[in-house]
């Protein structure tokens, strides 16, 4: 099963994302409640897609993207930014750092599911 890392400091946000992503039964979510947790999980858990919030208390999404894109292992792993309206500058920077897509809250589950299929496919395919 494809594994997807979701990094967001809001537990409610994570559970909504998990519900959306795992709905199809094709993907399994690995949750990180902070940038640090993502840094700890990434070397251990092989993931096929990374979804990250930008505003987090320890290290922020941009710093995480920078780490991911510089690592041997995840250089080419697809990465989506989750953002909110009004943070366009940070989103632009994220895309420049190598994020593939961005989604603005409130997130449309169908768009998210479609993007995931587009980037990582499903086991059946």
């Amino acid at each position: 099963m494809r594994r997807i890392l979701v990094t967001d400091d809001s537990a409610t946000m994570r559970s909504l994302l998990v519900a959306t992503i795992e709905a199809s039964g094709d993907y399994e979510v690995v949750e990180a409640a902070s940038g640090f947790e993502a840094l700890r999980l990434l070397p251990r858990e092989k993931v096929d897609l990374i979804i990250t919030d930008i505003n987090m208390p320890d290290i922020n999404g941009l710093e995480l993207i920078n780490y991911v894109r510089k690592s041997e292992q995840y250089r080419n792993t697809p990465l989506f930014i989750i953002s909110t309206e009004g943070r366009e500058k940070d989103v632009e920077k994220g895309l420049a750092l190598g994020a593939n897509e961005y989604l603005v809250k409130p997130i449309d589950p169908e768009r998210l599911q479609a993007l995931i299929r587009e980037y990582v496919g499903a086991d059946a395919e």
Partner: peptide, 12 residues
């Protein structure tokens, strides 16, 4: 101001 992580000598 900012804390930027990067992969160390070995990612593990």
């Amino acid at each position: 101001i900012s804390t930027l992580p990067s992969v160390g000598a070995s990612i593990e």
